[in-house]
Design a binder for these strands. Structure first.
Lengths: 151, 151
DNA sequence: TATTGTTATACTCTATAACTATA
DNA sequence: TATAGTTATAGAGTATAACAATA
């Protein structure tokens, strides 16, 4: 169990990490905002799925996910075919164009990270990824157990 | 120098970390949005300063910083007094109320992190903070060297 | 009646550009 | 003329709530 000071420092670092994400987002093509790119990344890694599961993996609301997917579908990156098992759902799949795009995005992300993290060892990159994954898992567990309090 | 796979994984984790930040933000009082809270945190840690430096530390544009500060000043958390050395600037300081608020926020952040990271060792918390700080530093170095390309 | 998605609305964050005041 | 800060505008992300269709 860590001290208060360490938690405060972690909170500060998390709050500041947005700048890195914004920098990274600059490698994206203009018609592919970060939200839409995140959808492609997950579909590429995990394969076809319904939108509910996609929202779960992205850890954002289904309504938001729906809009990101619509964006990608309109541009021909994502195919939404009927779900034979449930008429309410559709199965999301990357199209050929979608796979080409995500390959391109992946290259650009990698290039940008490789440029900036030139001095990082394999282990450091690995360690950061692991810690972030763990952080996310340990928060996701008890989602929505806290509420904003009045001033 | 890490492999492409590792960079892709890191990019994924960074993209997903927003959910944790949103969870954490729920502990904030309703009239103190995350941006305003971040300003208080920095003023508390680094002491009085001008808005230009504040923007630098927050890694966001001065125009945005200005609005967050105005929010805090309107609520009596931040005092903006004239800068004796430069008539264009003002010196930002936490008021007594501001110090009370940031103490409260710090407690709440700490509590939330302690709840969720119950199983984390001191070292893990420390390591994550350090890696995030380093990530931020290595990106901040070459800000604005990349540009969004057309589709 | 409950669940899966979609859409409408509203809020926060951010950057760019135009503008004011001072150096 | 250049710099510090403010304000207006626009774009992106998010959640909540209302709604449609199906289970």
């Amino acid at each position: 169990m860590a001290e208060q000071r360490q938690y405060e420092e972690l909170a500060r670092q998390l709050s500041a990490i947005g700048a890195v994400k914004r920098d990274l987002a600059r490698v994206l093509p203009v018609d592919c905002p970060p939200g839409a790119a995140a959808v492609l990344v997950v579909l590429d890694k995990h394969g076809e799925m319904r939108i509910g599961r996609l929202a779960e993996l992205l850890a954002i609301d289904m309504s938001v996910t729906s809009r990101h997917v619509a964006h990608g579908a309109e541009r021909g990156w994502i195919d939404r075919s009927a779900d034979p098992d449930d008429g309410r759902s559709r199965i999301l799949r990357l199209t050929r164009a979608g796979r080409a795009l995500i390959a391109e995005l992946s290259d650009r992300y990698t290039q940008a990270l490789a440029d900036h993290l030139r001095d990082w060892s394999d282990d450091d990159v690995q360690r950061l990824s692991s810690l972030l994954a763990r952080l996310r898992a340990d928060f996701g567990d008890c989602r929505a157990t806290t509420t904003r309090t009045p001033a």
